[in-house]
Simulated assay, not measured.
Amino acid sequence: MSVLFYPTLVALLIVLISGPVLIPILHKMKFGQSIRQEGPKSHQAKTGTPTMGGLMIMIAIVISTCFFAKLNMEVCLALFVMLGHCFIGFLDDYIKVVLKRNLGLKAKQKLFGQIVMALIVTYVGVNYMGMKTDLWIPFSGITFDLGILYYFLVFFVLVGTTNAVNLTDGLDGLAAGTMTIAILAYALICLRFGKTDLAIFCLAVAGATIGFLWFNVHPAKVFMGDTGSLALGGALAAVAILTKTEILLAIVGFVFVIEALSVIIQVISFKTRGKRVFLMSPIHHHFELKGWSETKVVGVFWLVGLICSVAALLILKVS
């Protein structure tokens, strides 16, 4: 089993080695992050910090996975979803940072790409991998055959997870640390189901995000950008779909869920009542404006992520 630590170690080392090379290049090319003016004032000092650091994460994951895992259909699909979302995120970052168009890709353009990926994943999984179109309900032992509606479930999981991770990427080390915890939990889930090569993919993701934290913890020297956050969200969603644990994902990724829900609640409340529920959304900014330090918010959210991941593993064990 010790060999399973190699993908993590190799991915970590690749990021640590590539960081000092890539970060100065991003600086030189002026790939700097713009900061929301209405956000916490302490964040204004982050303006110009290089973004698109997700590229070093992707390079590490691909190399480590290809070296240690058998490239079966499951692993290839996971890589496809991750790199597909990486491409969408890269285009979004490039348009915002390089072409100076603040809105980046239009929502319908992002959705089109995600629809295509959801269709491919579901079609290949069902028709070539024997993946069932059912939904497992934890504790009950019940599964519901969704039939054609399973395509919509896959799309919902992909879009929901990628955007939730993207929203979480707002504080130094928050998204990378929370993703590390969640994907390590899914490595154990994959091993539980005998999906060793998919577990290796998860461990490569964990190694890359741990390595990225070296440069991304407060004060961050580089941000992952949409290039990294959308891709990591895609990787997490893909593994949940391939292990048929879509509902369990909501527990493992509870931090991502509350980040996304806080934005939805804030928008609905403001449009219907003209009032805000939170001082600022996503919710990590609410706690900052309540007086919490950035490192305290990140630490607490990491702890919540860890507790929820352990809870999910215990649920899986007794189900």
Rank of each mutant, 00 (worst) to 15 (best):
A199F: 03
A199Q: 00
A199D: 02
I200C: 09
C202G: 12
C202I: 05
A204G: 05
A204R: 12
V205D: 13
A206K: 08
G207R: 08
G207L: 06
A208W: 04
A208G: 11
A208D: 07
A208E: 05
T209H: 11
I210C: 12
F212D: 00
F212A: 03
F212R: 02
F212E: 01
L213H: 13
W214P: 11
W214A: 15
F215A: 06
V217M: 13
P219Q: 09
P219W: 10
P219D: 08
K221V: 08
K221T: 13
K221P: 07
K221W: 14
K221Y: 10
F223R: 02
F223E: 00
G225L: 03
G225I: 05
T227Y: 06
G228F: 10
G228Q: 00
S229Y: 15
S229M: 09
L230C: 05
A231I: 05
A231S: 08
L232Q: 00
G233A: 12
G234A: 07
L236A: 15
A237M: 06
V239F: 11
V239A: 14
V239S: 13
V239Q: 13
V239D: 12
V239G: 12
A240M: 12
A240G: 04
L242D: 15
T243Q: 01
T243D: 02
K244M: 14
T245S: 13
I247K: 00
L248Q: 04
L248H: 09
L249C: 12
A250Y: 02
I251N: 09
V252W: 14
V252P: 06
V252S: 07
V252F: 14
G253R: 14
G253E: 11
F254P: 00
V255C: 06
F256P: 01
F256Y: 01
V257K: 01
I258Q: 11
I258D: 05
A260Q: 04
L261V: 04
S262T: 05
S262V: 01
V263T: 15
V263N: 05
I264S: 07
I265H: 00
Q266R: 02
Q266E: 02
Q266A: 04
V267E: 06
I268S: 06
S269L: 01
S269H: 02
S269V: 00
F270C: 10
K271M: 02
K271N: 03
T272L: 14
R273V: 02
K275P: 00
K275E: 14
R276G: 12
R276A: 07
V277L: 09
V277I: 10
L279M: 09
L279H: 14
M280F: 08
S281D: 06
P282M: 14
P282K: 06
P282R: 10
I283Q: 02
I283M: 01
I283K: 03
H284A: 13
H285I: 11
H285P: 07
F287L: 02
F287M: 05
F287D: 05
E288D: 07
E288W: 11
L289E: 04
L289I: 02
L289N: 14
L289G: 10
K290R: 13
G291N: 00
W292A: 09
W292E: 04
S293H: 08
T295V: 07
T295L: 09
K296P: 00
K296E: 09
V298D: 01
V300E: 08
F301M: 11
F301R: 03
F301D: 07
W302H: 09
W302D: 09
